[in-house]
Every structure is written in C-alpha cells, then in structure tokens.
Amino acid sequence: MAVPISKKLHDWMLAQRDLASNGPATAKALDYSPKCSAWELARQRRLEALATLLAELDIAQAKLERQCETLAAERSLAERERKSVPSERPLHDAIAAALQVARDVDRTR
C-alpha cells in the first residue's frame, strides 16, 4: 500500500515542479524531493525483491527438509528389512558340510 501512495506523491511532485519556475526555493526543493522519492522507490523495490527471494528460499528449504525426512524414513525401513533377513551363514555351513561329505565319499572309493 505504501508504494502506490509514494508513487502518487512522486507523480504529484513532478507535476508541481513543472508549474514552478527554476529559481525559487520551492522549485529547488521539488527538484531534490523526486530524487529522494526515486531513491526510496528503488530501495523499496530492492527490498521487495529480497523479500521475494527469501520467501523462495524458505519454500526450497521446507522442500529439502521434507525430502530429508522421507530419505531418513526410507533408510530406517531398509535397515529394518536388512536386519529381518535371515542369515546366510547356516546355508554356507550346510554347503560346506555337503562338500566335505562328498570329499570323504570320494576318498573312500
């Protein structure tokens, strides 16, 4: 709301400057004021641009945090699944025992 009001004031001051002659103090003050108003408008635009960028960063950060939470949950699930898988050690032991028996049988022949 402040930007439209300051723009109206700026436009009005420019119109008043056109009515004033170059010499009087009023004209000098009006010459200075639009510059300040223009600087203020430019400053306001920069601040609005920064605020927009900060809002975009907040959105991006929230998205990244959700992705991290999802990854952490998936990692936890994968870890639980890995722990619930039976060990392959008994299978290795059974294969080793079968091979040993096969060697023993071959030796006895």
Rank of each mutant, 00 (worst) to 15 (best):
M1P: 01
M1Y: 10
A2F: 10
V3W: 07
I5F: 08
I5G: 03
I5W: 07
K7Q: 14
K7S: 12
L9H: 13
L9W: 08
D11T: 00
D11L: 04
W12E: 09
W12K: 09
M13P: 07
M13R: 05
L14K: 09
L14V: 14
L14P: 01
A15V: 11
Q16T: 08
Q16Y: 06
Q16P: 05
R17H: 03
A20V: 01
A20Y: 03
A20P: 06
G23N: 14
G23L: 08
G23Y: 04
T26A: 15
K28A: 09
K28H: 14
A29R: 11
A29K: 10
L30A: 01
L30P: 08
L30D: 00
L30H: 03
Y32M: 11
Y32P: 03
Y32L: 15
S33M: 10
S33Q: 08
K35Y: 04
C36S: 15
S37Y: 12
S37G: 03
S37H: 08
E40Y: 14
E40W: 14
L41Y: 06
L41K: 02
A42W: 04
A42K: 14
R43H: 09
R45G: 06
R45D: 13
R46K: 14
R46F: 06
L47G: 09
E48I: 02
A49G: 04
L50N: 06
A51K: 02
A51D: 15
A51C: 01
T52G: 13
L53D: 10
L53V: 08
L53M: 11
L54A: 07
L54C: 08
L54N: 01
A55R: 07
L57E: 07
D58N: 08
D58W: 04
D58R: 10
I59A: 01
A60K: 12
Q61T: 06
A62T: 00
L64Y: 02
E65Q: 09
R66W: 00
R66A: 09
R66L: 05
Q67L: 05
C68D: 13
C68V: 02
E69T: 07
A72G: 00
E74N: 12
E74R: 12
R75C: 12
R75N: 15
R75G: 07
R75Q: 07
S76Y: 03
S76L: 15
S76I: 01
L77H: 09
L77P: 03
L77F: 01
A78L: 15
A78D: 05
A78Q: 07
A78R: 14
A78I: 03
R80N: 03
R80F: 08
R80T: 05
E81R: 15
E81Y: 01
E81W: 01
E81H: 06
E81I: 06
R82K: 11
R82G: 05
R82M: 12
R82H: 04
S84Q: 02
V85K: 13
P86D: 01
P86Q: 07
E88F: 14
E88Q: 14
R89A: 15
R89D: 12
P90M: 02
P90S: 10
L91H: 10
L91S: 11
D93F: 10
D93H: 08
A94Y: 04
A94C: 10
I95H: 12
I95S: 05
A96F: 05
A96D: 15
A98V: 00
A98I: 00
A98S: 14
L99A: 06
R103H: 12
R103F: 03
R103G: 02
V105Y: 06
R107A: 11
R107I: 05
T108V: 09
R109Q: 11
R109T: 08
R109Y: 11
R109N: 10
